[in-house]
Simulated assay, not measured.
Amino acid sequence: MTLDPPTILALTVALAAAAALYLAVEWRSVREPSLLFWSAGFATITLGSTLALLRSSGFLMIGIWFANGLLVAAHLLFLLGVARFTQVRLSRLWWLLLVAWLGMLMLPADLPWSKAMLGVQSLLVALPTLRASFLLRPHGKSLSIGAVQLRYVLLIHGVFYLAKALSVLIPGTLIDLAAFKGEIIQVSLVEGAMAIMLIALSMTGSERYRREQQIARLAARDPLTALYNRRALDLRAPRLLAQVSPAQPGALLLIDIDNFKGVNDLYGHTAGDRLLIALSEMIRSVVPRGALAARLGGDEFVILLTPASSEQIIELGSSLRDQFYQLAAQTVPTPQPVTLSIGANLFDQPPASLTALIEQGDTTLYESKRGGRDSIRLVDRRTMQAP
C-alpha cells in the first residue's frame, strides 16, 4: 500500500479516533477534566482529517478551510487540557485564534493563496502547542516521565508548525492544498500521524501517573483530617528515627483530647469531626519542617520530630493547648472543659521500634491525664529524669 497523502490521512483518522476513544474511556473511570479536553481534541482531529479527504472531490470550502480550522480548534483543546492538568488559568484571548481563522475564509480558494493559508494555519497551530509545552515546564521533574515526554513532544510539534509557517516564505515553494501537492504538505501529513501517537501516549502516561500518585496519597492519609495515618507513619518513621543521636535528639508527642465525648453527646459527631479537623490544622501550623504528624485513631494524634529539645517541646505543646482550648471554649462549650493532654518523650538513641516508642508515649500521656488533664508531661529519656 502506497503512503500517498489520502492514505496517510486515513491512517491519521484511525489513530486520532482510537486516541479519542481511549482517553474518553479513561475519563469515564477517573473523571479527570484534562482527559476530556484531550479526547475532544483528538475527536476534532478525526473529524477534520475526514473532511480533508473531501478536497480531492472538489469540496474545497469543507476540505480545506473548515478542516484546517478544526485542526486549530483541536490544538486549542489540547492547550485547555494541559492548563487543566497543570491547574493554570488561561486568558480568553486564546479564543481569538479561532476568530483569526474565520478571517481566512475571506481568502479565495485558488493556488496563489495556498501559501498564505498554510502559513496562517501553521502559525495558529504552533502558538497553542508551544504554550502548552511551556505550561508543562515546571511540572516535568515533579510529576512523571509522561509529563516530560508530553512537554517535549508538544515542543517539537509546535516548533515543526512554526518552521512550516516560515517555510512558506521561501520563493518557488510549491504548495497546493487542493491536490495535496508540495513537499511541505506531505511531510506535514507524516509528522501529524506520528505526533498523534506520541501525544496520546504521553497524555495517557501523565494521567496514569497522577492517578497512581493520588491513590498513594489517599492510602497514606487519614480521610477526615488529611494527616498521615498509622500505616503511613510506620513507613516513614524509621528514616526519621535513624537520624536520632546524642547530638540530635528526637521527640515523640502523643496528644489526646480531654472530655471529647461530651462534644459528641451535646453537639453531635459532626461537631466532633470539625473539632478534630481544627486540631489537625493547628498541628500542621506548629510542627517544624521535616517532622511527622499523624492521627492514630479517634481523638489521639502523634508528632515525631528531630532534632528536638525540652524547651521546643514545651513551647510547641503549650501553643497547641492554648489554641485548642480557646477554640473549643468558643465553639463547643461543655460542662467539663475540652482541652488537650500531651505526653512527650525526649530521647537520644533510636528506639527498638515505633510501637515501643508509642507505648512509652502512652505511659507519659496517662501520667499527664492522671495529673489533672489539660497539661503536658515531658519525660527526658536522655537522663531518665522527669522535669
Rank of each mutant, 00 (worst) to 15 (best):
Ala216Trp: 05
Ser202Thr: 03
Val379Pro: 14
Leu266His: 15
Ala294Met: 04
Trp94Arg: 12
Leu93Ile: 03
Leu275Gln: 03
Pro246Leu: 01
Ala308Trp: 04
Phe59Asp: 14
Val159Asn: 00
Pro307Glu: 14
Ile215Glu: 15
Ala116Lys: 11
Phe160Ser: 00
Pro307His: 12
Thr173Asn: 06
Asn68Asp: 05
Phe324Lys: 03
Ala232Leu: 05
Gly343Glu: 14
Gln213Tyr: 08
Val287His: 08
Gly361Ala: 12
Leu154Ala: 00
Arg84Thr: 06
Pro223Asp: 11
Arg321His: 03
Arg55Gly: 09
Ala19Phe: 05
Pro307Asp: 12
Gly297Thr: 05
Ser353Glu: 14
Ile303Pro: 12
Glu300Ile: 05
Val263Trp: 10
Gln87Met: 05
Gly205Ala: 07
Gly140Arg: 15
Thr355Ala: 15
Asp4Asn: 14
Leu296Lys: 04
Leu346Cys: 02
Pro387Leu: 13
Ala52Ile: 13
Gly290Ala: 02
Pro350His: 07
Val30Thr: 10
Gly172Trp: 08
Asn264Lys: 01
Leu346Ala: 05
Lys164Gly: 13
Ile255His: 02
Ser285Lys: 01
Ala193Trp: 01
Tyr366Trp: 02
Met104Trp: 02
Gly119Glu: 03
Thr173Met: 09
Ala278Cys: 14
Ala16Gly: 07
Val244Ile: 07
Tyr267Thr: 11
Gly250Val: 04
Leu11Ile: 12
Gly272Ile: 01
Thr363Arg: 14
Pro350Gly: 09
Trp113Lys: 06
Ile184Cys: 02
Gly48Ser: 09
Gln121Cys: 06
Gly41Thr: 02
Gln186Ala: 08
Phe260Ala: 06
Val263Gln: 13
Gly343Val: 10
Gln323His: 07
